[in-house]
């Protein structure tokens, strides 16, 4: 039996993530116990951790700080495979421009920036914000979580802010929406996605399956 903790800090579609990994676990015939939890001990003992997120970063960080989720994530990041999703990924960065500026966990070097009011595509047409829908992800380097996921597969995104890391070597996938942005960042035992694998049908479920089988080594 392997255990997976989905960190519950009171925001967003935690149950969507849990349902998707349970589904994938069944498909792979894994003995998997998924807990949606804010309990430090359960998280500390889990074999792998998902740090999900939707919502406004200020409220997320307030909850993270209130529940000491940051410590749990920091602890998990020492060793076990961690998957951070969307605002979960943004929360790992040092700082976000959202809500007038919010300090984040600072576990990955970089910032979270707004797309801007005047975002335009290559042809000059105005782009909508949030960036919402299915966009292509170019895999910029090999990673166990990309195994069996065709390059340039479409994943589901929904966000108005995007993460920028100072260390280019960490970017594992990019997408284009007015500008090139990090769609996935990988750092040792952490894999973080701006898109929602749990909502990205086949490609997303494949990535989640890869996560369930991942040792945490890149």
């Amino acid at each position: 039996m392997s255990t997976l903790a989905v960190i519950d800090y009171g925001m967003g579609n935690l149950h969507s993530v849990a349902k998707a990994v349970e589904h994938v676990g069944r498909e792979l015939s894994l003995e998997l116990d998924v807990a949606v939890t804010a309990d430090a001990q359960t998280i500390a003992q889990a074999d792998r951790v998902i740090f999900p997120g939707v919502g406004a970063i200020r409220d997320c960080m307030a909850e993270i700080n209130r529940l000491n989720v940051g410590e749990m994530v920091a602890e998990a990041m020492q060793s076990r495979p961690v998957l951070a999703i969307c605002v979960g990924m943004q929360a790992l960065m040092a700082y976000s421009e959202e809500n007038g500026g919010v300090d984040c966990l600072g576990l990955i070097p970089g910032q979270v920036r707004y797309f801007g009011e005047e975002l335009r595509d290559a042809a000059g047409a105005r782009l909508k914000v949030p960036h919402m829908g299915w966009n292509e992800v170019r895999q910029t380097r090999a990673h166990p979580l990309w195994e069996g996921v065709p390059d340039n597969s479409r994943f589901y995104f929904v966000h108005s802010y995007y993460a920028q890391t100072d260390r280019n070597g960490l970017v594992a996938g990019t997408s284009r929406y007015g500008k090139e942005m990090a769609a996935a960042i990988a750092d040792r035992n952490i894999f973080a996605t701006q898109f929602h694998p749990e909502k990205s049908q086949k490609a997303g479920l494949r990535l989640l399956g890869n996560f369930l089988l991942w040792s945490g080594e890149a």
């Binding site: 967003g12 939707v54 919502g55 406004a56 409220d59 949030p130 929904v158 108005s160």
Partner: peptide
Amino acid sequence: AAERFGSQC
């Protein structure tokens, strides 16, 4: 609602 749950939802 947007402040609590985020505009995206």
